[in-house]
Design a protein around this nucleic acid. Structure first.
Lengths: 346, 346
DNA sequence: TTGTAGGCGTTATCAC
DNA sequence: GTGATAACGCCTACAA
């Protein structure tokens, strides 16, 4: 701790304080901060350097951004922070953003369009330089507004084609095809599709559609085994699950879920119902959370390259910010089927 | 979309634009924004209101903060965003902050003091109004610096008494006592304590200490069954686990872990080793992640009121910001032992 | 190589 | 009730 910074409430240090202490003008300090060292005499540089050290000075990002009309902030709105998918994305995105001098404003919409809208507005007030959003699909106009303000928006996992925005997600068609065909090869008589209500969530619509397509193509009888369940109401949820199990009693059967959170809920129920996996029932889910290898001796998963998706999304935002690209782009990653105990080979 | 806002790059709307459109001065608009409606004529209010609507105006938080020396930003640094503990905390904290007009800057240190330090600096540059930190314990001087700048800091889960800062966490003493005594009642001959390396992480030190205390008090033989393992090196990790299992072969045995992530790693290994829980080994862990009821038919847990802890931490920050409190305060929540299949009653 | 002046979007102060 | 005007902390001309 240095003199002038002793005791309480040393009024926050500004560029002016640094200039004064170094015996130079604010401009010179600003040049130093901006890394324009060529324009500075060696001696001046040194003086500024030590003044900054001594005062523990940190330039105000907000003030800096005010003039330059940049916030160095990138918003990330995710649908459910409890989903391991989300946290993996965040880690990927953070890695890239911090390397490029940007900080994240992470928001969790809890899949609620209203919350999502509030976050968008909040982020606009903070003048974010870009946005990555795992959207509920219920705020298209707000997103378009950002686009009109020429703030780069990248849609994550859930696409909205009519918005014509950058998109990073999974190749659901191939993922469904590979995994479902794998199940079909095992000759399950009944394969149930479980999803939470679709709402405006494109991923769920897509996965359902592709699921049906593959079934039809293979003339499989399960096209009625579709269960759209809300996990909020655990009673109804249990009943729907039971209804499938009853209906397919005595047949070889499998459950396919659109995400891992849902699978975990189902696992929970199966556990209390004392249904043994895979003896009585097989399981396959999207995502590969860290508990997947353990539950029921391992649950078969469609793994997504989540970290890379986060990296990719952030890179797309940065490209746009730098003006390196002006037309929207879509990037689909391939999923990877990881076979485990919950779907034994026949 | 309204005239004057059509097309591309409608230069970002400012308070000046609103004033012009409403035919009043910036000052009046500012009064409106600040909610000082008494000072405004009904008619003026109306004009401003519609101008704001029509222009889709959102005041710049940064500019506002510049003048008011407030950022309306609260930093949250967590140690590992993949830990369900963290996400629960975040949800609690967010609920309170947004209700009070603050936004979060969430950072994930990955338990790396270096990253943590960078985040602290970054947050200082953004002039956060307060900080909640699940600290690695390796940045005391940076935290003190914030304190000197009179920025409220609340320590989460991991305390550092010499910093004399606000703290919210778990009553580890009672939690360990209750859970370990429960195990002792079941007459396990060997109870192993598994933790990741302590480093400067107070929680781990504490839990270890209390664990030993209870063992000693009960004259139990397990005081040597301490395993400090890094999950990075899965080979050594496996060996340490094996070493305990070998060592305690034929005896009734249990494993106690300091957090759920570690327990999951262990569960993974047990799975591949084909060790049956609870027949051959019992398990008990801190935290109660959503997979806990499912793995091995249910793992016994010490549940923490995570959401409430997040709420509490944020409330403490806000109190400080409002100047309602000036002396540091500690708040210890009680854990709750949830008994499941992994620790059957004898 | 350095410094002065003005402006970024907002609020606070002080007149009218 | 209302409106100039001067900050806030920084950066960018432009000048010296």
């Amino acid at each position: 701790m240095i003199e002038g910074k002793v005791g309480k409430v040393a009024q926050k240090v500004t560029i002016y304080d640094v200039a004064k202490r170094a015996g130079v003008s604010k401009t010179s300090v600003s040049r130093y901060l901006g890394g324009r060292l060529e324009e500075l005499a060696e001696k001046t540089k040194k003086k500024i350097e030590s003044a900054i050290q001594e005062l523990d000075y940190r330039p105000s990002t907000a003030a800096r951004g005010l003039k330059g009309r940049k916030s160095y902030l990138i918003g990330v709105i995710i649908a459910d922070i409890r989903n391991p998918y989300s946290t993996a994305i965040l880690r990927g995105a953070e890695e890239i953003s911090s390397k490029n001098g940007y900080s994240l404003m992470i928001c969790n919409s809890d899949n609620d369009p209203e919350k999502e809208k509030n976050f968008i507005h909040m982020l606009q007030s903070h003048r974010i330089d870009g946005l990555i959003i795992h959207t509920t699909g219920g705020n298209n106009s707000s997103l378009l507004e950002m686009k009109d303000d020429s703030i780069p928006v990248v849609l994550l996992d859930r696409n909205i084609p009519e918005l014509d925005m950058d998109f990073v997600g999974l190749d659901n068609r191939t993922a469904i095809k590979d995994s479902l065909e794998f199940l079909l090869q095992q000759d399950y008589q009944r394969i149930a599709f479980f999803s939470e209500p679709f709402h405006e969530i494109s991923t769920r619509h897509e996965r359902y559609q592709f699921f049906q397509d593959v079934l039809k193509k293979n003339n499989h009888e399960s096209s009625e085994d579709i269960y759209i369940v809300s996990t909020e109401d655990s009673c109804r949820f249990r009943n729907k699950l039971l209804s499938f199990l009853e209906d397919a009693k005595g047949q070889s059967r499998a459950i396919f879920t659109v995400n891992a959170l849902l699978m975990l809920k189902i696992a929970n129920e199966l556990n209390t119902m004392n249904i043994s996996v895979p003896d009585e029932l097989s399981l396959l889910t999207f995502d590969n959370p860290d508990w997947a290898p353990v539950v029921f001796g391992g649950i078969t998963c469609i793994e997504q390259p989540t970290f890379e998706i986060g990296v990719s999304a952030m890179n797309m935002v940065l490209e746009r910010i730098r003006g390196e690209r002006t037309t929207s782009e879509s990037f689909l990653y391939k999923g990877k089927l990881i076979k485990r105990n919950s779907t034994p080979l026949m």
